[in-house]
Amino acid sequence: MMSTWARPWVLVPVVAGVLSAGQIWASHLRYELSLENQQLNKERQETLKETSTLRLELANLTRPERLRKLAQEELGMGPPKPMQVVHP
């Protein structure tokens, strides 16, 4: 004898309900992932942009003319005499 829940008129709506719920959950998951993906892409772009700016800033701070000026004016250094360069 078939139990009540296994009868087709009960099973079909239950399966349909489960599938619908699954579909809704998958759709929600896809939406959430989409948002996360967009956020990560945005962060990636921002990081690339920041890297580029930092590289430029580094190039600007280490430009030879600036280092030479700092060495001469703040540290009192000067160009080495030829004999002071032991291991060039």
């Binding site: 160009p79 360069v85 060039p88």
Partner: peptide
């Protein structure tokens, strides 16, 4: 020349003084 040669690793020669 006197700035770049040491930078390139070309040592000055003591004899030339």
């Amino acid at each position: 020349a006197e700035s770049v040669l040491p930078y390139l690793g070309v040592a000055a020669s003591g004899d030339l003084r």
